[in-house]
């Protein structure tokens, strides 16, 4: 059972990697990295069960959080071209 899951996850990881390298658009790559992170979380969980040490699940949780933060940062970069740009409200305050 876990073997079948592991093989499926590894194939999906390879496909996401192909998409990240081939592109062609920026959004393909962001999506590829995001799904790669999610698949890593799944892979770590399954590896934990395959080796009989399910306590690895904690690390998988941390990975999920990091993946989320990374994606937010990338999207903010694309939308604003800056991480700390003042919003409209800040501008009104200063003038």
């Amino acid at each position: 059972m876990f073997w079948a899951a592991m093989i499926g996850i590894l194939v999906a990881l390879a496909l996401a990697l192909v998409r990240a390298i081939a592109g062609p658009t920026v959004y393909d790559r962001i999506l590829a990295v995001n799904s790669f992170g999610t698949l890593t979380v799944l892979a770590l969980s399954v590896i934990g069960f395959l080796m009989g040490r399910p306590d690895f699940l904690d690390i998988a949780l941390v990975y999920a959080l990091i993946n989320f933060i990374g994606t937010i940062a990338v999207l903010k970069f694309l939308r604003y071209g800056d991480f700390a740009r003042a919003t409209q409200a800040d501008d009104n305050d200063l003038v």
């Binding site: 990240a20 390298i21 920026v26 790559r29 890593t40 770590l44 990975y63």
Partner: peptide, 22 residues
């Protein structure tokens, strides 16, 4: 394309972290 390289470096460290777990 440096943006793609940045994305790939993220994948690289996720992969090496998985190897460390194994």
């Amino acid at each position: 394309n440096l943006f793609a390289v940045t994305m790939l470096s993220g994948i690289y460290s996720l992969l090496s972290a998985s190897i460390f777990v194994v």
